[in-house]
Nucleic acid binder design. Structure first.
Length: 288
DNA sequence: TAACGTAGGATCGGGAGCTA
DNA sequence: TAGCTCCCGATCCTACGTTA
């Protein structure tokens, strides 16, 4: 039983006005390409699923050996390239001060994450997880989305994800690099960047998408990302692909689980992605 | 051979969020 | 609050394949 993707689509379904200054023209959007809210919610959901399981990750949290960090900068030592990772599980450092997010649970309000009653109950049962500075990263998660303009998004998606695992392992060779690609299967998309006016005042500019071809080609592209089987290898330790249907026009966002999405048993399936992370963690960090 | 369509790479730039 | 970084869609350009 996993919750991450359901939490994501539920949270994104409610139009949001942005965490700070509000989006342009006073519009509210389900998905805004210039926001990192979707990445943060997705990574939070992945971490939530990992913590709900009876595994070493949970025991290390309970024993106050580890904590988490967000937007953690990792530096590829070999070429000095810097990269901010969405969410990092790390050896417990000094708690951050003066930040709105002081704990893992605080992210729910900070990023307007919508939980069901069951998920809220499960969150309350978790030990307190402080937001701290990162002493030594054990697991780094990076999520990226492609919602429209797939032809241009594909090379960008590949390059940015490829640079993520290089930065993670260039910084900390033993750290688990987890990557996740979120791909839209909707046949149209209302782009916040193409509608430069208050929605309703003028005709909405709707981008037509050639589906399922565009989504499938994007899946094939990210499946080409290198993956590694052991320390010393090159690539992601675990990589997942999630398919959603997001028209971005107010209709609820739907999790796609038909032939377009990775089947059960595929290494890219969400459950396999989670299981691989906890398996690697158990073998790699048992001595902490 | 010219015209057209498509794919992919390079670059740009608007908006959000973070930090000093 | 200014300046910066990050995210990722928009735009432009080139290469290549297809068709008349």
């Amino acid at each position: 039983m996993s919750f991450g993707l359901q939490i994501l689509v539920r949270s994104l379904s409610t139009p949001n006005s942005g965490a700070g200054k509000g989006y342009a023209y006073g519009n509210k959007w389900q998905y805004h390409p210039r926001s990192d809210r979707h990445s943060k919610i997705l990574c939070w959901g992945i971490a939530f699923d990992l913590l709900l399981r009876d595994n070493l990750i949970r025991r290390h949290i309970r024993d106050e050996k580890t904590s988490f960090g967000i937007n953690h900068t990792m530096v590829d030592f070999t070429n000095k390239r810097r990269k901010d990772l969405d969410l990092v599980i790390c050896q417990r450092g000094t708690p951050v001060s003066g930040k709105a997010v002081a704990s893992f649970a605080d992210m729910v309000d900070a990023y307007e994450i919508e939980l069901s009653q069951e998920e809220e109950k499960l969150l309350r049962q978790l030990p307190a997880i402080p937001h701290t500075g990162v002493r030594s990263a054990l697991l780094a998660l990076e999520a990226k989305a492609a919602m429209t303009e797939f032809g241009k998004a594909r090379p960008r998606l590949y390059d940015e994800l490829n640079s993520s695992h290089q930065a993670i392992h260039g910084d900390t060779e033993a750290a688990i690099a987890g990557g996740f690609a979120l791909i839209n299967t909707a046949s149209s998309f209302v782009s916040p960047l193409r509608n430069h006016w208050k929605i309703g005042e003028r005709k909405t500019d709707v981008t037509k998408l050639k589906q399922p071809d565009e989504a499938l080609k994007t899946v094939q592209k990210v499946e080409q990302l290198p993956r590694r089987a052991s320390i010393g290898g090159h690539g992601f330790d675990s990589f997942g692909i999630g398919m959603i249907e997001c028209f971005n026009d107010g209709r609820p966002i739907r999790l796609v689980s038909d032939a377009l999405s990775p089947p059960a048993g595929s290494p890219f399936h969400y459950d396999a992605f989670i299981e691989r992370i906890e398996t690697i963690y158990a073998t790699r960090f048992a001595g902490i």
